[in-house]
Design a protein around this nucleic acid. Sequence first.
RNA 1: GGAGGAUUAGCGAAGUGGUCAUAACGCGGCGGUCUUGAAAACCGUUUGGGUGCAAGCCCACGGGGGUUCGAAUCCCUCAUCCUCCGCCA
Length: 424
Amino acid sequence: MLDLKTIRDNPDFVISRLSTRNKDYSQDVSLLLELDEKRREFLQLTEQLKATQNAASKKIPAMKKAGEDVSAIMQEMKAASDELKELEPKLSNFQVQIDAILHSIPNLPYSDVPEGADANDNVEYRKWGSPPDFDFEPKPHWEIGANLGILDPTTAAKVTGARFHFYKGAGALLERAIINFYLDTHSTRGYTEIFPPFLVNRASMTGTGQLPKFEEDAFRISNDDLFLIPTAEVPITNMHRDEILDSASLPIKYCAYSACFRAEAGAAGRDTRGLIRQHQFNKVELVKFTTAETSYQELESLTTDACFVLEQLGLPHRVVRLCSGDMGFCSAMTYDIEVWMPSYSRYVEISSCSNFESFQARRAAIRCRADTGDKPAFVHTLNGSGVAIGRTVACILEIFQTRDGKVIVPEALRPYMRGLSVIE
RNA sequence: GGAGGAUUAGCGAAGUGGUCAUAACGCGGCGGUCUUGAAAACCGUUUGGGUGCAAGCCCACGGGGGUUCGAAUCCCUCAUCCUCCGCCA
């Protein structure tokens, strides 16, 4: 959520920054400012009435005590009360409309974000390793997984439906090993490990920006109005919702494993085979709460921390800076980390590291106080996958496959796999 | 699932229709006096938001709604926590 005061004071700047997202928000902004003006007009009226009510409420008991007749002033206040009952619904109606618009306007892209229309305009930032040269025809991970008997989407289709997998034997072990390797790595490098709930309430989904605009992307528990989390970002960021943090405690750094659940509405027909796009997948997430001054520096280190685990596994990858048109709703700047996927013959996203600045913090009321006596200020929130587990499995199967259909387990994972060095 | 009880500032807690929410009182925090320094004691101070050029005014007693001229207080509803019963990995 953007700051209404900022929009009020610099509407042209806001509109021009938003326009880099390939959408014109000038209508929304002018409607917003119109409603805001109306709201303040009605606010003054109602507050005036309330002030007279309050004054009378102090006077009436005193008059009663003095034995004076209060029926006249009671009449008067009855009229004021009736008038308020007319005005207040109008006022709150303006407020509701304003909130709806504010919640539907995306974040302003940061000045360093390259302008562009779509993923083709993303800018490569750095690269690690290089795509392997196979002296045989490499197989896609879904074939490798089927041949080794470690990935089973067919049974999952029977038991649950499309876009789910059973992992079996060494496959299940590999998935679990990667989770533990990622958590151990991050938590020994300054991130506090958290194990969150996988269901959250509506307020949490709104706090991090999944609601109200993207409800169709989420799975909702119909009898409880709870949502299956699309990422651990939601429960972790909302841990500090409605809190004023001591700025001495910043930056706060968390890492968390969770299953993630996504409806993938609108992705019909895309990535239907393999582990790339599932309704349920595992992920280790990194989340930071920082001051406004340090957030971009922290975005760099968060991205580096996510890349670190890929380097440990020996997976070739690159970092791209997303262009304005490709960035998510809440983000001010995003680095995607992409691993080389032989079956796709291109780099595929395995992590998305974003600085949301105060956009989520304003929605979720997460603030900090620099010094005792200072006004609280919104923190900056950041997060990034550190990294997605299913896609890591896919990448490992493809990158470390051998001519005879086996898969070499990366050194770093062997201690987590009871010493297993080859899946065959 | 059933029956009771609770929810007030960072924490504990008083307040059952008005003149104590600028929220008593206690603890904690901050500043000061005293002290070589510290502790103790004493004095002072200490919520957040909205609106207005400003003085100021308005809102918030778990959330939402209602009754009333007026609600922390009465009613309805939802949430969370506690105790007991039932069920349960």
